[in-house]
Simulated scan of single mutants.
Amino acid sequence: MVNVREFKRACITSARLTEGRLIEFRLADDVTPNFHQGLVAYHDHTVAVVCPRDLAVLAVSKPRTIAFVDGARESGPLIFVDVPALAAALAEQPGFEVLAASELNGPLDAASWPGVSAADITYWGPVTLGEALFNYWD
């Protein structure tokens, strides 16, 4: 389990270092999704720092709604984006690995990610690494 306090600290520190502003945490406290988000606002856009509950991995994506909205929950794959300055600041935070959009949008090599359940991979059939690490599976 990822320490939520450490995730929050990494988001706040990285936002500050990149002249962004941490505006919200969206913590996954139900079965789905399996990831937390820290929303960082810049003058012209907002991005989400995402972290799976069970792996010390960080990435940057477009923000997603976690709570139910109109009886449904967003459940499609995240859209990963590259924000080089933010990724560099996140990489300076101890205890986390930062993955780029190109890695997350690339193929899943299950052997490289033993923390992802083989049964989930078989059942859900993720194609990309991002789909396997950041998902809405139940």
Rank of each mutant, 00 (worst) to 15 (best):
A100Y: 10
G130F: 03
F68C: 15
E103H: 00
C11L: 00
F35W: 03
P52N: 03
R26P: 04
S75R: 13
L27K: 03
S102N: 12
A59G: 07
F68T: 14
K8N: 04
V47P: 09
F134D: 06
I121S: 02
T46L: 01
V50N: 07
V50L: 04
I121V: 15
V69C: 06
F7H: 01
G20W: 04
R73L: 15
F25Q: 00
T32S: 12
P52D: 02
E103N: 10
N105P: 13
A48G: 08
A72M: 08
R53C: 01
H45Q: 14
T122K: 00
Y42G: 02
A88I: 05
E6M: 07
F7P: 00
V49P: 08
P52K: 00
S14L: 03
D54L: 13
D138L: 14
Y136H: 15
L90C: 10
T46C: 12
D29Y: 09
F35T: 04
A72K: 14
E103T: 06
L27M: 13
A41Y: 08
A110R: 09
D44R: 05
L86M: 12
V40G: 09
L90P: 00
G71D: 00
F68E: 06
I66E: 05
V116Y: 11
N105H: 09
R16Q: 10
V98L: 04
I23H: 05
A67Y: 11
F25C: 06
V83K: 00
P33E: 09
P84C: 11
V98S: 04
A118L: 14
F134A: 08
P63V: 06
S14E: 12
E92W: 03
Y136W: 15
R73Y: 06
L27F: 14
A118W: 01
A15I: 10
L99M: 13
G76E: 13
M1F: 07
A15S: 07
G106T: 06
N105L: 12
D30W: 09
L104K: 01
L78N: 10
G71M: 10
R73E: 15
L39K: 05
P33T: 05
D82P: 02
P126Q: 03
L22N: 12
F25T: 05
L129W: 06
G106V: 06
E103C: 03
T32Y: 15
A85P: 07
A101V: 11
G115W: 10
A41W: 07
I121W: 07
L27I: 15
S14D: 09
E97L: 08
I121M: 00
H43T: 14
I66A: 03
V81I: 15
M1C: 08
D30A: 14
R21N: 15
S14Q: 12
N105A: 10
G38P: 01
E131C: 09
A132T: 00
K62Y: 11
V116L: 04
L39D: 07
R73T: 12
D30L: 10
F134E: 11
Y123R: 11
D30E: 09
L27G: 05
R16L: 11
